[in-house]
Simulated assay, not measured.
Amino acid sequence: MELHQVRYFLAVASTLNFTRAAERCNVAQPALTKGVQKLEQELGGQLIYRERRLTQLTDLGKEILPMLERTLASAEAVRRRAQEFQRKEVAPLKIGLAPSISASLVLDPIAETAKFVPGLHVELREEAAEKLVDLLLKGEISAAMVGEVQDMPARIDDWSLFEERYVAVLAPTHELANHSSLGIDDLRETILLERSGCDITPKIQRSYSPEEPFHLRHSGSNDLHLQHLAAAGFGVIIAPEHMPRLATLKTIPLEGDLVSREVRLLAVQGRRYSPALDAFVKVARLRDWSAVVRTA
C-alpha cells in the first residue's frame, strides 16, 4: 500500500466522482483509477462501485475509510514534523540529571541554547548516574549531567564542567545548626544519614577518621527520604552543595572542604548531534561556571 493510493481513494470517497478526485489530486484520471485499483488488489476486495454516473463506496470501502483517513493524517503529520525539525522549528532536547544535580544549574544554558534554536523543546529526566549512561547509549536522552560514575563506558564523551564541595545538611533545630562550619570531630560526634550506594561518607571516614568510625544509624536509597529524616532531627546528611533540598533544611560548610566532586556533562561519542544538542553542549562547555556554582 502506497500513500498516493490512499490519497486517491480518499479523494474519490470524498467527491464520489473520479474526474473531480483526479483534479483534486492533480493527476490524470487514468492514473488515479489505476492507483485505486491497485489498492483494491492489495486489500483483496472492491472498495468503490462504478456504475455509469453512480459512484459509491462498498461495505469494505466504508469499513476501512476511517482507518485510511487516520493513516494519511499520521503520514502528513510525520512529514510536517520532519520539515519543522529540519527548519529547527521543533528541536527536542532530553537532558538527564542525576538526583543530586539541581535543575537550576541547567536553566541558563537551556535559555542560551534557545537563542540559537528557537524551536527548542526541553525534557528533563532524573535517574541514577549509571542509569543515565544506559539511557544515553540507548538514545533515550540527549545528554546528562552527573557527578561520579563508576566504570564509564568508552563510548561516552565526558566533560568536566565545575567542581563543587560537599556540605552538611541538617535541621535548623539540630544541636550543630548554629555552627559556622563543621569539622571532622563534629562529624564523629553526631549521627550521619547515609545514602545507599554512595561512597562519600566512607571516603571521608577512610581519609580523616580511619580509627574512629562515624555513627551511621539510618540510611536510605532516596535523597528526599533522607532529607525528611534529617528534617525530623534524625541526623546529618553529607551532600553536594547544589543538591536540591527541602526548604526546611539548613546547610553548613565542612571545614577545609573535606570532600568535593566534579560535575560532568555526558553525551554519546561519535553520534551525530541534533542542532539542539550541539548548541547545548557548546554552551555548557564554554560557560564560566565559577560564579554560578557559588550562588546556585
Rank of each mutant, 00 (worst) to 15 (best):
F214W: 08
G235R: 01
E255Q: 14
K203F: 12
L224A: 09
R188H: 05
A230R: 03
C198N: 15
S260C: 05
Q227I: 01
A232R: 03
I252Y: 08
M243F: 05
K203G: 12
R217C: 04
L193H: 11
G235N: 04
S209N: 05
T251Y: 12
A232M: 12
S219W: 06
E255W: 10
E212G: 06
D257S: 04
G235H: 07
Q227E: 04
A230D: 02
D223Q: 14
A232L: 11
E194C: 11
Q227L: 00
A230I: 02
H228D: 10
G233S: 08
L254K: 09
E189S: 15
L187Y: 09
L246Q: 13
I191C: 13
P213S: 07
T251P: 03
G233L: 11
M243V: 02
A247E: 15
I252G: 07
I204W: 10
E212P: 04
H215F: 13
H225M: 15
V259R: 07
I200R: 01
D257W: 02
E194R: 12
P210K: 03
L254P: 03
G220D: 14
E255D: 13
P244H: 13
I191L: 13
R245G: 01
L192E: 04
A231L: 03
L216C: 04
I204S: 07
A232G: 09
F234I: 10
L226S: 00
P240M: 06
E189D: 15
I252T: 05
R195C: 04
D257I: 02
A232K: 05
L254W: 11
L226T: 01
L249T: 07
S260A: 08
S260K: 06
P202M: 14
F234V: 09
E194P: 06
P253K: 03
I252L: 13
